[in-house]
Design a binder for these strands. Structure first.
Lengths: 200, 200
DNA sequence: GTCTATAGAAAGATAGAC
DNA sequence: GTCTATCTTTCTATAGAC
């Protein structure tokens, strides 16, 4: 997507269509999404969607890329000289304690999109890729901590998978229930777990 | 559902419809589910569905109850005199190391159904209820361990929420990616976490 | 590139015979 | 209770003018 310099341009028709799709998904969910409903969120006409995308399927695949790119950009991690702070930084970005309405919306949308991976191989590959990248990021931070001697010599990948599972589980809980206290409890417990297991 | 003695009867038309809906959901996912596709999995005709249920929506609400009841029955926990074994028992039922194809299907279906909770209040309440019950079960087991003096005096609810988040996160990963090793890693890490935190 | 109009298929739902 | 036939609405997608 970032290959074409115009692709990310604000106001390009393709971007407007992606934004309209985003709004339609938030309102109706994936199972209630239709071309007409996307057009309802779009300034131009329904048939103009078909000028830019060959089919609904084609549009949805493009949206998947769009949404995944945005998500990964929003989680992008800067490394500091404090691995524990880096870890907490990733956790806060993936599961903010006080999410804005927009953060809530994005995560709800991702949970909804992700469920399509149950029956659609293309979605499956994308979300496997996301998880793989996140585990890689987490593993690298943990290994840096081990190298610097501030962390215990744990199995970094195993701990990273544990952290990711907690984050994904809490993210799903937040998007699909009103058990906000559960999210807080999971986050607190996760921090104390990392403190116990990593800090020497 | 268990109020009416005939409701659970094998071979009752309502049960056949629920089974047909189950198969249609496995094949097409929630977003691809239609009355015609349910009828395709059903011995009788499409219009007979409307004799038993007023609308697609009505049928789906009934199916939600059916599926949740089956899930909760499959997770039902017997208590022993070994709290750690009870805990591992719940974990193994919710996230089996070697799931059968049927267990895989049920969990994939639950992940798919759950995503409807993002935009449908009725689904939201159901899944909040499921999580609440599971946390209660886990909390009780942990508190029993504390009372017996075999567990440390931890915040039982907090640990229970942590465990549930790992289980839900790994369940979603299993249903939406092919990262089976991630599930194994999360389970191993979860066990060692419980051992570290609980065992005195 | 965007529009209006519409084709053609599939959706949810009902009528009326048996 | 179940059937076939059919209605209406909604859906995806295209034709053709501008």
């Amino acid at each position: 997507m970032a290959v074409d310099p115009d692709a990310d341009e604000r106001g390009s028709t393709e971007t407007e269509i992606m934004e309209a799709t985003y709004r339609a998904l938030c309102k109706h969910g994936y199972s209630g999404l239709s071309i007409s409903r996307i057009a309802d969120e779009f300034e131009k006409s329904k048939s103009s969607l078909y000028y830019h995308y060959d089919s609904k399927d084609d549009l949805l695949v493009a949206f998947l890329t769009f949404a995944v790119d945005r998500f990964e950009a929003s989680v992008a991690t800067e490394r500091s000289d404090d691995p524990m702070a880096d870890l907490e930084g990733v956790i806060e970005r993936l599961l903010p304690l006080r999410p804005t309405d927009e953060q809530r919306q994005i995560q709800a949308l991702l949970v909804d999109l992700r469920s399509q991976a149950v029956t659609d191989e293309r979605f499956r590959e994308r979300f496997a890729d996301i998880d793989e990248r996140l585990v890689t990021t987490l593993t690298e931070v943990i290994e840096r901590g081990i190298e610097r001697g501030t962390f215990n010599e744990v199995d970094a990948t195993r701990v990273a998978e544990h952290v990711l599972a907690v984050l994904n589980g809490a993210m799903v809980a937040r998007a699909t229930t009103d058990r906000e206290a559960a999210v807080a409890a999971a986050r607190v417990s996760l921090s104390s777990y990392l403190d116990t297991v990593l800090r020497r």
